[in-house]
Design a protein around this nucleic acid. Sequence first.
DNA 1: CCTGAACCTGGTGT
DNA 2: AACACCAGGTTCA
Length: 410
Amino acid sequence: MALRAAEWQKLPISLMELCINTTLRCGQSFRWRKSAEDEWSMVLHGRILSFRQDATYLYYRATFPSALPTPPHSNTPSIAPPIASDEDDTLALIQHYFNLEPNLAQLYEQWASADPNFKKRAPKFTGIRILRQDPWEALIGFICSSNNNISRISGMVHNLCKHYGPLIGHVDGEPYHDFPTPEALADPKVEAHLKELGFGYRAKYIAKTARIVAEEKGLHWLEDLCNPESPIFGKEPKPADELAEGGREGYRKAHEGLLALHGVGPKVADCVCLFGLGWSESVPVDTHVWQIAQRDYKFGKGKHSSLTAATYTAVANRFRQLWGKEAGWAHSVLFTADLKAFSERVVAKSEIKEEKVKVEKEPDGSETIETVTDVTVKRVKRIKTEDEPEHDVVQIVGDLRTRSKRRKAV
DNA sequence: CCTGAACCTGGTGT
DNA sequence: AACACCAGGTTCA
């Protein structure tokens, strides 16, 4: 398999501007895979991209598919066409995908000065950017996300690529496929197959949506819902209209259009708008965000005691009012801070402290001092209820005590 | 408009 | 071990 694996390149960028370890794991894309220690890989625009990062650089490498097609056997997706080697647009692609234009540190400052809660939560979650993902991939990925968890969603999306997406190449012996086209998922056998693969009721949503996009509306319909300022890779940006309370007109049109699809409700539509269509003011209100809105932004009472459609827009509007045009970006920071996968980073009441537990005299005259480094994670939840207005619930997440013994010479 | 129930599945907690 | 509960919700009555 003659794969052209390029050398590692590097792009200077600080962890405050982009942190791939957070951005690629925070549930906005379900397709990134760990290809080695501290190395993330995925297929993008017909090539495998791999990334590493340190404090000063983002390191990247592109692996293009071989020009030689391998013999296809039954039910195997076709091989992607090779890409001309002389015009390597990988750097431009990366800058587009990671959405590197906005100054993130500046935005964090803006959100922090407008919102004390953001200011409190954000310091341990810097460098989170909204990716510019393919609209079609975002649509299918977030249809999979309904009433589901990130780990299973990732597995499902991986299965879609594996069974219906073109094989691009291998990294560390593992095959990497691109995301399937609408046509590939519009096949009549797809629904039953996806059910066998454990997609549950989402199998029907995916099959229906694929048929509508492939045979009725066309992929251009979806791509034309993009924010004109933030078009798909390779297109020229054009200005968008003014921000209103409910978002720009283009955003509202896109959201409305997506709602017509089966399996797409307000939350999924917002995820597609934010992560796939470049509408930065989109604020998906899911269970996490609803919890946050109740805990930190006084929602959950009176008219907005449950997450109805009206409450949904009220919450989203509140966050747009608070954070402005890039409200969806700020939202993702707080969302990530709420994810269990990142719970070790939550603001702990007791930070690392070391205390002596016992001192043992050894027969040889030296003494052994045993210490306990208490890094037990205590997550403090501020709960507000009717009868008890405000009390803290200290949750011991994990006992991470590390005992260290060290010898002290006499 | 709002409410409640059903929906697939796999991991976690009791 | 069996069972409830939950996970980036949506549909239907």
